[in-house]
Nucleic acid binder design. Sequence first.
DNA 1: AAAGCATATGTTGCATACATGAAGAGCGTC
DNA 2: GACGCTCTTCATGTATGCAACATATGCTTT
Lengths: 226, 226
Amino acid sequence: MQDDLVTVGEAAEQDGLLYRIRRLVLGGDFPPGAVLPEAFLAQEFDVSRTPIREALKQLQHEGLVEIRPKVGTFVREPTRREIIELFQLKESMEGLAASLLARRGEVAELAVLRRNLEESEMASLTHDTDAYARLVHEFHWTIVRGSDNTKLVEHYERLMNQLAYQRLVLRTVEHPGRLEASTREHRAVLEMIEHKDPFGAESAMRNHVHASSREALSDPATDPRR
Amino acid sequence: MQDDLVTVGEAAEQDGLLYRIRRLVLGGDFPPGAVLPEAFLAQEFDVSRTPIREALKQLQHEGLVEIRPKVGTFVREPTRREIIELFQLKESMEGLAASLLARRGEVAELAVLRRNLEESEMASLTHDTDAYARLVHEFHWTIVRGSDNTKLVEHYERLMNQLAYQRLVLRTVEHPGRLEASTREHRAVLEMIEHKDPFGAESAMRNHVHASSREALSDPATDPRR
DNA sequence: AAAGCATATGTTGCATACATGAAGAGCGTC
DNA sequence: GACGCTCTTCATGTATGCAACATATGCTTT
């Protein structure tokens, strides 16, 4: 169902193990800082430690966990500084995506974006934050996929995994007035794309991501102590 | 010491295995499309197949090799399309880096850049292409590291590995007139950074990368048949 | 002679066993 | 009573063995 939309490029995941463990980490089932014993995961997924180790090593390279040699694997939470850094990258990448999409003709993604905007306005009016969070996710991913740049998609996916973005969005959509502002920004982006204005689209997208990042960083959940 | 500059973020590589195998692949010791048997690498590096497999799996996620299940691991060469895509990303990321660096004060990186530019002009006059290729590498990496954004550095490193950039640069610096043009572009970037003009720096950097990508793509070595 | 099939081989994928090293508990000493 | 040391325990890191599968070879059949 929506999972197909949510996981997007992950469909190409040959071994679901990496994906499943990533969900475990991102889903917050394990408290950040906690250890994930290989033996436990092996038993949990009914495989040997070997494939578990391969997946964990990959997650380490993604920055989601930290493997302290001979000690264990720990769930890693991005520091506030890293969140800022990742948002800067997000702004750049999504700006590029919007620009590339604007250069393309009338492609299927545009219809998805228009429909998404309509549904977002509905969700905004009814203050259905869960639906809105899902729509935001879809909007951004549609633009990135619409860039028709597979390498951008790959790096973006990696970036979003590092950000643990879902958690952040669920917080920011609850800020008063953010839904309406976000929808306006989405509309501006879409209009620029429809006008085939790459610079305008990039600019609008970067503005939007920047605003969104400020919202996320202003949230107390992004613990400033770290 | 210069090795530290060249290998940059790789210093954090705990197991040199991944790094060493990557060098093997990027160094072109294996013909693209050739298999790298795990057993051979295991014997070569005097370890068991297990750490070899971990490294290969990582290289697969980096896009440098392709693991066909139950068949073998093959050296993967980026297609022309992928090179275009990667250059678009490079342009975006380096633009971001230049912008961020321009926002910072007088940092140590600026001195490195100034010195680099001087040496580049020398190399340009004497047509020392090897030295110039090294200096180009240093110039770009210095800007990226100077962005003071570790996540950008990580993604950039990944990107450059995927591009197998060294091979490309060695070709383009031999294009007539390219050295002079490249040096002019570098100067423009540095001036914008010194003037603390983030937008100008980003713009100049993107122009430069764009020009450089056209050079690389015009080279017959970037096989258009693929 | 050509096409199809069975077999053989070589490689990966996973599981298990063992070695290595780190953190913690318990004891002895100051 | 507190500190330091040793030993135990447990988790990871690596090696090896075995099974599964894809490819290639040679044989049989038409």
